[in-house]
Design a protein around this nucleic acid. Structure first.
Lengths: 209, 209
DNA sequence: CTATTTCTGTATTGAACGATACAGATATAG
DNA sequence: CTATATCTGTATCGTTCAATACAGAAATAG
């Protein structure tokens, strides 16, 4: 054990509790008072552990990613590109409407804080979103090699499309849409998938794998 | 002219200047100091004209709607449902990436401020988004009567789909996507339009995955 | 044991927040 | 003209903000 008085709280648990505050109120809306109360610690402990409010927020984003890494793995492990897309959008639709028993508001933490007096915050959040978009893009590049995605399709565009759709679903969820409504949107979005649609980007029909 | 000393500034112009501040920094991030500086007036004048920071924000939202009412009219006046959808998404894609010569950031004012310590703000913004969604829904109901939209399609779902897509496009724009990228997304989203797709949604009843 | 290190709670910091009191300026009403 | 009403700028209100100083508590190291 390290020298000195041991920490009396769990950093991960504290970050989890801070997450719900940021989620509900946004970065600027979450005051230090809100945060320390929810985390069950005092301000000096927060600063010792996370450095600053921004440091805490970044730690929360990392924790958010860690929580949802299992979801992305499941999405990417689908047997073909369409399966990936379906897993992704359906998963987002269900997740976005899930308030986790009231622990968090509907929507997605990474789609909040779109603007902020400190521009570093929206940029940081956007970076986390872009990470997932890139995972999708890479997966679709592989799908093209595997032959389960049309050579005419552009993996980057498809990934951007899914990402945009997912973000839009989260906005709708935050405004109170039901899971069923979100799933309807997701399914409508999947109709345009190159393998399904007759009017694929750059016209050339291709047999399904 | 009214009794008393006349107002020395234009309310609409002041609201326009406040709009860019809210747009860049969000509701909470925009301080009274930021706002009065941009508006070129002092705090008492702001409070006399708008009542409060929240009152100013609501006035800005109304002004935003007024500015874009011409766009919605043009969108809704398309000859058929697909034309409406295309006008809408293409217009959003172009608008979202347009910084108006640096006057405003990319994205949409109505997609910012997703969370806030005062929940009335996200609700107000969501209400303004929902207004446009309802306009689309009504237009699609009319399109069904006119026969240029499949009877199997659900106008409300289609409107929600377009709205979600538009919001997603705005999120991508705020993160720095180019007009061309946004248009690619928009066009991909239009492929799923019932009139185009062979696999149109056949049942209005909600089905689980 | 003593010395050192690190965390804890209390109490507080200066700055910035949203919002006003006030007095002077400028209009109308009679 | 005087009286009244409304807007203007200055100067400031009390509150809350994010962030710390400090002293005591609780661990290790020798």
């Amino acid at each position: 054990m390290r020298m000195g008085r041991p920490r009396s709280f769990c950093v991960d648990q504290a970050a989890d509790r801070a997450m719900t505050v940021f989620w509900k109120k946004g970065y600027e809306g979450a005051s230090l008072s809100d945060l320390t109360t929810a985390m069950g610690i005092n301000a000096p402990s927060l600063y010792a552990a996370f450095g600053s409010k921004e440091g805490l927020f970044k730690a929360v984003l990392e924790r958010y990613d860690a929580r949802r890494s299992g979801f992305m793995e499941k999405v990417l492990s689908a047997p073909d590109a369409l399966g990936v897309a379906r897993n992704y959008l359906e998963g987002i639709a269900e997740f976005a409407a899930d308030t986790n028993g009231g622990a968090n508001p509907p929507g997605c933490l990474l789609v909040q804080s779109g603007s902020c007096s400190d521009a570093a915050i929206p940029e940081e959040v956007a970076r986390h979103r872009a990470e997932k978009e890139q995972l999708l893009c890479r997966r679709f590049e592989q799908a093209q090699k595997d032959g389960d995605l049309s050579k005419n399709a552009d993996p980057a565009t498809l990934a951007r499309y899914l990402s945009a759709m997912a973000n839009g679903i989260c906005v709708q969820a935050a405004a109170g849409a039901t899971t069923a409504e979100l799933l309807d949107i997701a399914h409508l979005a999947l109709v345009s998938w190159p393998v399904n649609a007759k009017t694929a980007p750059k016209k050339k029909t291709r047999a399904a794998a």
